[in-house]
Design a protein around this nucleic acid. Structure first.
Length: 897
RNA sequence: GCCGAAGUGGCGGAACUGGCAGACGCGCUGGAUUCAAAAUCCAGUGUCCCCAAAGGACGUGUGGGUUCGAGUCCCACCUUCGGCACCA
C-alpha cells in the first residue's frame, strides 16, 4: 500500500528546487511578466536556539503569496537574510570564548537549513547578512550620507517623480552660514555645520546600563526603568554619543503614513509614538534676585515695550523664561511656573536663601533613575527657587519652582502651571498649597471647573472672557505674536535617536577623531573616505565590558585604532559601534541588488523593485524598526538615492503563537514547540498548512498538536484522492480519469478555485484551506474523479503545501515543476445554480424552506412561499401586514394576531 | 489613566454589503473494516423542554436601541490582550 510519506517527498523536491534554481529571480522580467511583486519577511536574528514556530507563520504566509503570484505570472522577488549583529553573540563570546563571528555564521547555517527544510521559495542567491563586510560597507556609507545631510524645512522642490515638496535633507555644503558665524573663522563654521547634521554627537544624559555595559536608546528601556533585554537596572549618565536627528523628519513620518496600506492601529501606534502637539511658546519676564550678577534695572514694562518693537527673539534673553503650552487660553490661570531641574536658568534665578535647597534637589533628581521617577509619580516633589516670573498677559507675579515632573527634554523644559485645568499641576498645587484659579468654564453643572481639562469657555480672563477654548487659543497666540511675547509652536514626543552602542559586535563608525599633540581628542572629527569603506571590525578576543562606558573597540589593536592623516594630523577611530537597528534599516534595498560593488543599490533596480509590495513580520517592530527604516529611506530619498517616498507599501503583522496552554511559549514553562520535531513527525507541508489553518494571520492563537494531526490527515486524504491505495508503488488512482466533469463537479471545482483565489488575495489562508478540504471531501465521494478537477486542486494546494503538490503533479504526468504552471481560472457562470433553497420567515423566524429558480423575481418568490404547506399553516388565521422578498436571499411575512 | 484590538459550541475558528449562526478542523458518540489493534471510511454532535419522534423554546460578553429581520449598525457598560504612561 502506498502511503503519504512526507519525509521522502520533501527532501526530493527541496533538492530539485535547489538544483534547478527554481526560485532564483532575474532582475529582468520575462516577456510574459504581469508586473513585479516584492514580498518581504522581516529577516530574523539568527539566535542559537534556532527557528521558533513563530517564524514559519509569517514566512509561510509570504511564501503562499509568492508562489501564488508566480503562477499568476508575476515577477516575484522573495529574498531572505540575517539581522546578525547584536548582543547575544557577544554575550556568548564573553561566556564561552567563541568569537561572535564564529557563533553568528554557525547560527546562520542552522537557520538556513531549517528554512530550506520548510520549503520556502526564497531566492537564496540574494542572501545577505548585516555582518558581511560587503553589506556593512554600505551601512557605513549611508551613515556618511546622514552625516553629510542637514534638514532644510523651508526648501520647496520637485522630486524625481515630479511631485512638489516642502522640506528636504540637503548636503551640508549647501547649509547657509550666518555672517556672525563665518566671521569667527573656520572652526566656528565647522561647529555650526556639525550642529546641523542629521548625524551628530551629543553629551545629553543617556541610559547607561551597568550590567550590559552599554548605553541604551529610550526605546530599549522599559517603563520600569529596566533594560528591555535582560531586565537590568538602567541609570542616567552624561556621555558623548552619536545621535540621529529623526525629529527633523517627524512631520513627514506622520504625514506619509496616510497613503500606506497598513492597518489603522499600526499607524496610530506610530503617530502616538511621534506624538505631535501644537501649542504656543510664551515668554515670561523674570525678576532677577538682587544677588544675581546679571541683575539689571530693567522693569517688566520696559521689557514689554522693547519686545513690542523687536518681536520675539530666536532665543530668549537671560532674564526671560520661555515655556511651552498646548493651552495658551489658560494663561490667566497660571499661578506658578515650573522648570526642569536641569534647566539652564536655575543658576541665574535662584535666590541665596534657596540655593542650597535647590542644589540638593537638583543633585537628587540627577541621580534618580527612571525607575525612581516613575515610582514617585504619585507623590509630586519640587522646590521653590525664590524667583518670580511676570505673567505677560496680566502682570501677575508668579513664583518659579523646580520639579522633576517637568522634563528638560520636552518643549522648552519649562511650563506655566495652571492647576485648575491640568491634573499634574493641580496635584502639585495641592501638595504645596499653591493657589488655584479657574479660567475655563466646563459649561456643565455636573462638571466642576476645577480639574476640568476639556474645552469650554473662558472666565477670569480679562477681555477674553466668554471666548470658547479653540477660538481663544488662536486669538491669544496671534496677540502674543503681535506683542513679541510668544508664537505658535509644535512639539513632538519623539526624541532624536541615540545611535551609538558600547559593543564590539556591531558596525564600526566610519569616523576619525583628530588628536592634539598630547593625544587627546580636539573635538574635531573627520569621515573615512568612501573609497576606504568598509571600516572592518578589528580582530579581538576580549569583549568583556570593563565596567566603564569605554567600548571594547577602545582596546582594539593600535594599527586599527590610530592613524595619521595626509596633513600629519594624528587620528583615533570612533570606538562606539552602531546599534542593531542600523543593518535592518535598509536591508530591503540591498536584496534588489545584493552583489553591487559600486553602489548600495542600482538606481534602475531601485525604481523597478521598490517599494516592497508586501511586508510581513511581528508586531514587536510596529514602532521602532519601521520608524527607523522609514526615516533612513526618506533621507535617501531627499538625497536622490531612492525614488520611493516610503519603503513598505503594505504591512501585515502576524499574531503571536502561544503554547498549548494559552501562555506565551517559553523554556521555563516547558511549552515550546520546536519546528524540527513537527517536521520530523508530520512533514513541512503539515507544519505550513497547520500554521495557516490555525486562524487569521494577524490574530494571537494557541498551538494544538491535534490540529497539526488534523491537517496531516487532510494531506493524507488528498494523497489518496489522487494515488492508488491498493498499489504497492505510487501510482495514479484508477478513479482519476480523463473524462468531462458533470455539472455538480464543475460547480464544486469552480467554487473552490474562486474561493481559494480570493482568500489568498485577502491573506485569509485559514478559509482557503477549509475550502480545499470541502473540495476533497466532495471528490473523495465521487467514484470517478475527472482529471481536470484533480489537477486544479493540486495547483490550488501548491502554494500551501508545495512538496506534496509537486509530487502529485508529477504523478499526474507533468515533467516540470508546477512553480510556473498557470493558476487555475474559474468561470462565474459555472458556479451559479439554477435552483436555490431559501428560507421563509414569519415575523423574522425561519419557518420553512422553499426551492425556487435562482432568477425568481419578488412576485414569483412570494407566490412560491405562499403555496408552501408549512407556511400556510403558519399564516392561518393571521393578518399579513407586510411581505419582504429579497431575491436569492429570503422571504419574510410580517403578521399580526 | 489614555490609545488600540478582541469577546461566537467542549476547543481553534467560519459567516459577502444587515438576510438560514456555528462552514472547515479538533474533540466526543455510534457504526463499518479487522482475530485484534493502528490506519481508514460512514453517520451524528449548540443548549434546553419532550420517553422518543414530531415539535417547541433559548442562543454570538452584559444591558438598552434602530430594523420586517442584528454576530454584523447605534448608545452605555463589563472582561481579556497589546501599546503608551508626568510629553505640559
Amino acid at each position: 500500500m502506498s502511503r503519504y510519506e512526507p519525509r521522502h517527498i520533501e527532501s526530493k523536491w527541496q533538492t530539485y528546487w535547489d538544483e534547478h534554481e527554481t526560485f532564483v529571480t532575474s532582475n529582468e522580467p520575462n516577456d510574459a511578466s504581469q508586473g513585479k511583486m516584492y514580498v518581504l519577511d522581516m529577516f530574523p536574528y539568527p539566535s542559537g536556539s534556532g527557528l521558533h514556530v513563530g517564524h514559519p507563520e509569517g514566512y509561510t504566509a509570504t511564501d503562499i503569496v509568492c508562489r501564488f503570484n508566480r503562477m499568476k505570472g508575476k515577477h516575484v522577488l522573495h529574498p531572505m537574510g540575517w539581522d546578525a549583529f547584536g548582543l547575544p553573540a557577544e554575550q556568548h563570546a564573553i561566556n564561552t570564548g567563541t568569537h561572535p563571528r564564529v557563533t553568528t555564521y554557525e547560527n546562520i547555517d542552522n537557520f538556513r537549513r531549517q528554512l530550506k527544510m520548510l520549503g520556502f521559495s526564497y531566492d537564496w542567491s540574494r542572501e545577505i547578512s548585516t555582518t558581511d563586510e560587503d553589506y556593512y560597507r554600505w551601512t557605513q556609507w549611508i551613515f556618511l550620507q546622514l552625516y553629510d545631510t542637514w534638514y532644510d524645512p523651508e526648501m520647496t522642490w520637485t522630486d524625481q517623480n515630479g511631485t512638489k515638496r516642502t522640506g528636504r535633507g540637503r548636503p551640508i555644503s549647501e547649509l547657509p552660514i550666518p555672517e556672525d558665524v563665518s566671521e569667527k573663522g573656520e572652526q566656528s563654521v565647522r561647529d555650526y555645520q556639525d550642529q546641523h547634521r542629521l548625524a551628530y554627537q551629543s553629551n545629553a544624559p543617556v541610559n547607561w546600563c551597568p550590567a550590559l555595559g552599554t548605553v541604551l536608546a529610550n526605546e530599549e528601556v522599559t517603563a520600569e526603568g529596566l533594560s528591555d533585554r535582560g531586565g537590568h537596572p538602567v541609570e542616567r549618565r552624561a556621555l558623548r554619543q552619536w545621535m540621529l536627528r529623526i525629529t527633523a523628519y517627524a512631520e513627514r513620518l506622520i504625514d506619509d503614513l496616510e497613503d500606506l496600506d497598513w492597518s489603522e492601529s499600526i499607524k496610530i501606534l506610530q503617530r502616538n509614538w511621534i506624538g505631535k502637539s501644537v501649542g504656543a511658546e510664551v515668554d515670561f519676564f523674570v525678576e532677577l534676585p538682587s544677588n544675581s550678577e546679571s541683575a539689571s534695572s530693567a522693569t517688566f514694562d520696559d521689557w514689554k515695550s522693547a519686545r513690542k518693537n523687536s518681536g520675539l527673539p530666536q532665543t530668549p534673553e537671560g532674564n526671560v523664561l520661555r515655556v511651552y503650552t498646548t493651552r495658551p487660553d489658560t494663561l490667566f490661570g497660571a499661578t506658578y511656573m515650573v522648570i526642569a531641574p536641569e534647566h539652564q536658568l536655575v543658576d541665574t534665578i535662584v535666590t541665596d536663601d534657596k540655593r542650597s535647597e535647590v542644589e540638593e534637589y537638583r543633585r537628587r533628581s540627577a541621580l534618580k533613575s527612571d525607575l525612581d521617577r516613575t515610582d514617585l509619580a504619585k507623590e509630586k516633589t519640587g522646590v521653590f527657587t525664590g524667583a518670580y516670573a511676570i505673567n505677560p498677559v496680566n502682570g501677575e507675579k508668579t513664583p518659579i519652582w523646580i520639579a522633576d515632573y517637568v522634563l528638560i527634554s520636552y518643549g522648552t523644559g519649562a511650563i506655566m502651571a495652571v492647576p485648575a485645568h491640568d491634573e499634574r499641576d493641580l496635584e502639585f498645587a495641592q501638595t504645596f498649597d499653591l493657589p488655584v484659579i479657574e479660567v475655563v468654564d466646563s459649561g456643565s453643572d455636573d462638571v466642576e471647573n476645577i480639574g476640568f481639562t476639556g474645552q469650554g469657555t473662558a472666565i477670569n480672563s480679562g477681555d477674553y472672557n466668554g471666548t470658547p477654548t479653540q477660538q481663544f487659543k488662536e486669538k491669544i497666540t496671534q496677540d502674543l505674536q503681535a506683542a513679541g511675547l510668544g508664537k505658535q509652536a509644535t512639539n513632538y514626543r519623539l526624541r532624536d535617536w541615540l545611535f551609538s552602542r558600547q559593543r564590539y559586535w556591531g558596525e564600526p563608525f566610519p569616523i576619525w577623531h583628530e588628536l592634539d599633540e598630547e593625544g587627546t581628542p580636539t573635538g574635531n572629527i573627520r569621515t573615512v573616505d568612501e573609497s576606504e569603506l568598509p571600516v572592518t571590525l578589528p580582530d579581538m578576543d576580549d569583549f568583556k565590558p570593563k565596567g566603564t562606558p569605554d567600548p571594547p573597540l577602545s582596546w582594539a589593536p593600535d594599527e586599527w585604532l590610530y592613524s595619521v592623516a595626509e596633513d600629519g594630523t594624528r587620528l583615533k577611530r570612533e570606538t562606539n559601534s552602531m546599534p542593531q537597528w542600523a543593518g535592518s534599516c535598509w536591508y530591503y534595498l540591498r536584496f534588489a541588488d545584493n552583489k553591487n560593488n559600486s553602489s548600495f543599490i542600482d538606481p534602475e533596480l531601485e525604481k523597478y523593485w521598490l517599494p516592497v509590495d508586501l511586508y510581513i513580520g511581528g508586531a514587536e517592530h510596529a514602532v521602532l524598526h519601521l520608524l527607523y527604516s522609514r526615516f533612513w529611506h526618506k533621507v535617501l530619498f531627499d538625497r536622490g538615492y531612492v525614488s520611493s517616498v516610503e519603503p513598505f507599501q503594505k504591512l501585515v503583522n502576524q499574531g503571536m503563537i502561544l503554547g498549548e496552554n494559552n501562555e506565551k511559549m517559553s523554556k521555563s514553562k516547558g511549552n515550546v514547540i520546536n519546528p524540527d520535531d513537527v517536521v520530523c513527525e508530520y512533514g513541512a507541508d503539515s507544519l505550513r498548512l497547520y500554521e495557516m489553518f490555525m486562524g487569521p494571520l494577524e490574530q494571537v492563537k494557541p498551538w494544538s498538536m491535534k490540529g497539526v494531526e488534523g491537517v496531516y490527515r487532510f494531506l493524507g486524504r488528498v494523497w489518496r484522492l489522487v494515488t492508488d491505495e491498493q498499489s504497492d508503488d505510487v501510482k495514479l488512482s484508477p478513479a482519476v480519469q480523463d473524462v468531462a466533469m458533470n455539472e455538480e463537479q464543475e460547480r464544486v471545482l469552480h467554487k473552490t478555485i474562486k474561493g481559494v483565489t480570493e482568500d489568498i488575495e485577502k491573506l485569509s489562508f485559514n478559509t482557503a484551506i477549509s475550502k480545499m478540504m470541502e473540495f476533497t471531501n466532495f471528490f473523495t465521494g465521487q467514484e470517478v474523479r475527472p482529471k481536470e478537477a484533480i489537477q486544479s486542486l493540486v495547483l490550488l494546494l501548491a502554494p500551501f503545501a508545495p512538496h506534496i503538490s509537486e509530487e502529485l503533479w508529477q504523478l499526474l504526468g507533468h515533467s516540470e515543476s508546477l512553480t510556473y504552471a498557470p493558476w487555475p481560472s474559474f468561470d462565474e457562470s459555472k458556479i451559479a445554480e439554477a435552483e436555490i433553497e431559501i428560507p421563509v420567515q414569519v415575523n423574522g423566524k425561519v419557518k420553512a424552506k422553499i426551492r425556487i429558480p435562482a432568477v425568481a423575481d419578488q412576485a414569483a418568490m412570494q407566490k412560491s412561499a405562499e403555496t408552501n404547506e408549512l407556511v400556510q399553516k403558519q399564516l392561518e388565521g393571521k393578518q399579513i401586514v407586510k411581505i419582504i422578498c429579497v431575491p436569492k436571499r429570503m422571504v419574510n411575512f410580517v403578521v399580526k394576531g
